[in-house]
Computed example of a mutant assay.
Amino acid sequence: MHARGRARRDSRHATTFVFGRALGLVGSGATGSGTVGSGVLVRGPPPPPPPPPVVKPTPCTISDGACIQLSTNRTWVVRGDKIAYGPVAITHGRKGYETPLGTFPVLRKVKDEWSRPYNGPMPWSTYFTESGIAFHEGSLAELSHGCIHLDPASARYYFTTLSIGESVQVVA
């Protein structure tokens, strides 16, 4: 090592030593007891650890509206980044009739809807795509033609709680 490099290293060590000495941490008989020297520096218990990061309760990025996770067959209503209702079991679109991914507005609601293409009731329909995808009461044992099937109580809750224009986010 060059003399200049050694001098630089020694000066940093000296600065650390002087600073530590000024605080009473070096050469004053400090022990692990939390007191230094004649009691000039007294440390209390260590500070508490930082709080854990806030984990969003759903896989969606919206803070108000409905969140649907197709891979887990669950949905939630969220208000201000908090779960207001759910998770609720769902069924969704079968192969060839997949429920689309994305964020959509609630477009309309029909309490006693009837599906003409599939010739069946769709109570408590809350539509959120132009192509006719909706939350509604339906079988939780059979996949749908793209809609989100809910149990009767949940379908009614979504119908009465979600407002026109409110967000519905569908994630994989």
Rank of each mutant, 00 (worst) to 15 (best):
M1H: 10
I68K: 01
G120W: 02
C147P: 04
M1W: 12
I148F: 09
T15Y: 09
G146E: 02
E142R: 15
L101A: 01
E142Q: 13
P105H: 14
N119F: 04
D10T: 07
L140V: 01
D81F: 13
G44N: 09
E113N: 11
I68W: 00
T72R: 12
L41V: 15
A22V: 07
I62A: 00
T160C: 01
T35W: 14
L25N: 12
G86C: 08
L140A: 02
F19H: 12
T103F: 02
F135G: 06
P46K: 09
G86T: 03
V26N: 13
S167Y: 06
S144M: 07
D112I: 04
Y158T: 11
V78M: 12
G39C: 10
E142D: 08
G96T: 04
S63Y: 10
E166G: 09
G96D: 00
G65F: 03
I62E: 00
T103A: 07
W76S: 05
F159V: 05
F128A: 11
P47I: 03
V78I: 15
G29C: 11
F19T: 11
A141L: 09
V171T: 15
P152Y: 02
T129E: 06
V168M: 06
G65E: 04
R9Q: 08
V110L: 11
K82S: 06
A7F: 10
P52L: 00
L140H: 06
W114T: 10
A155W: 10
V42A: 08
S33D: 15
S38A: 12
D112V: 07
W124C: 10
P123I: 05
G37D: 14
G32Q: 11
P117W: 08
L143V: 00
P105Q: 15
G86E: 06
L25S: 14
W76K: 07
G44D: 08
K109F: 07
P152L: 02
G138M: 13
G29K: 10
L25A: 15
F159C: 03
A7E: 08
R43P: 00
T129G: 07
S139W: 11
R8A: 07
K111S: 05
G132F: 08
S125A: 14
I164D: 15
P46G: 10
C147E: 02
A3G: 09
T58Y: 11
R79C: 04
V78R: 13
Y127C: 00
E137V: 13
P57Y: 07
R8M: 01
A22Y: 14
Q69H: 05
V106C: 13
I133F: 02
K82L: 03
K95T: 12
G80W: 12
K56G: 03
